[in-house]
């Protein structure tokens, strides 16, 4: 659905050229939900604006929704929907008018039917005559998405879809996005700087930093790249058992690292969930008395830290 090679954009500023995006290669298959994760300023929006024909690339090219970005931008536009970060509605206009115009511009008919369908789809029924300014944040975001979906595009771009929404509206929007893919097979390409969002929504994540894609994979794959899960073992009598426990665990293949830490041990374990039983048996066999055992998965923030050397929260 998207195939980009060496896509780049350099802006000319008074301080000299700024490479916002440097040679991005990416492939998105039909029906995928793919997310660009990265701090503000990483080049996510610039890449999105190139893929949606709003900004000419200064390097590379892409095929989007079956059309060549440079040779046939009009074809790309017919095939895609785009929802900008700040939306794109006039606060004074009734939402019905904006939806109708959008349907007409794409030549979707019958217009009244399509508008009603979109309103039903995105829980906007009964609001058609209300001006955009009177909508809540969540409603306005759903209107933006309805506008992007007016022509049933096969590919929808969402730029920071839930920025500024409360947690309830965010979860609600995630449901809408999942349903879009489940019911219509819509391919979704989104950007986000929220870890939870990338984690909850995306089949595949591209981590972007300083204009480059620095890592790529499913959320689970990416997390596995961080050397193992963290297992915290609390011992009943650390002073007595810590040394013995460490020795017993160090022999297990899955344990990458084991060290004494406060009242117990801190371990880095591959596939921690599967290895928990093994850990317990080994400790039991060594006659160590356990107080508790906790498994923590690495987060995408750990992934970002591993790949870029900085925490996503610091980078933003």
């Amino acid at each position: 659905m998207i195939e980009a090679r060496g896509l780049g954009r350099t802006f000319t500023t008074r301080q000299g050229p700024v490479e916002a995006v440097r040679g991005v290669d990416l492939d998105v298959d039909a029906g995928e939900i793919v997310g660009f994760l990265g701090p503000n300023g990483a080049g996510k929006t610039t890449t999105l604006r190139m893929l949606t024909t709003l900004l000419a690339p200064t390097a590379g090219n892409a095929t989007v929704a079956g059309c060549d970005l440079r040779a046939d931008p009009a074809g790309v536009r017919r095939g895609i929907g785009y929802v900008a970060q700040g939306g794109g509605t006039d606060p004074a206009l009734p939402i019905g008018e904006e939806l109708e115009l959008q349907a007409r511009l794409y030549g979707v008919g019958p217009v009244a039917e399509r508008t009603a369908e979109l309103c039903a789809r995105l829980d906007l029924e009964g609001l058609e005559r209300r001006p955009v300014a009177s909508l809540s944040g969540g409603q306005r975001r759903r209107l933006d998405i309805a506008l992007g979906l007016a022509h049933r595009p096969r590919l929808l771009f969402l730029d920071e879809p839930t920025t500024g929404l409360d947690p309830h509206s965010r979860g609600d929007l995630w449901d809408h996005i999942r349903r879009m893919r489940a019911e219509d097979g819509t391919t979704v390409f989104l950007t986000t700087h929220y870890l939870e969002e990338a984690d909850a929504l995306c089949d595949r994540i591209l981590i972007m930093d300083r204009g480059r894609i620095v890592a790529e994979g499913t959320p689970a794959e990416l997390k596995r790249r961080v050397a193992g899960d963290v297992v915290t073992v609390e011992l009943a009598d650390a002073a007595r058992d810590a040394g013995r426990a460490c020795a017993a665990l160090a022999g297990l293949a899955a344990v990458r690292e084991a060290r004494a830490d406060g009242d117990g041990l801190r371990l880095r374990v591959d596939n921690g969930d599967r290895e928990l039983m093994g850990l317990m048996r080994a400790l039991d066999g060594a006659g160590v008395e356990l107080a508790s055992l906790r498994l923590a998965r690495p987060t995408l923030d750990d992934v970002f830290l591993t790949v870029t050397g900085r925490s996503l929260r610091e980078a933003a």
């Binding site: 785009y82 700040g86 939306g87 509605t89 006039d90 959008q102 506008l147």
Partner: peptide
């Protein structure tokens, strides 16, 4: 005003 609200950009992404 349209540039600021994003309306201009929304229209430019359509095949209009």
């Amino acid at each position: 005003a349209d540039l600021r609200s994003g309306v201009a950009e929304r229209l430019r992404v359509t095949p209009v």
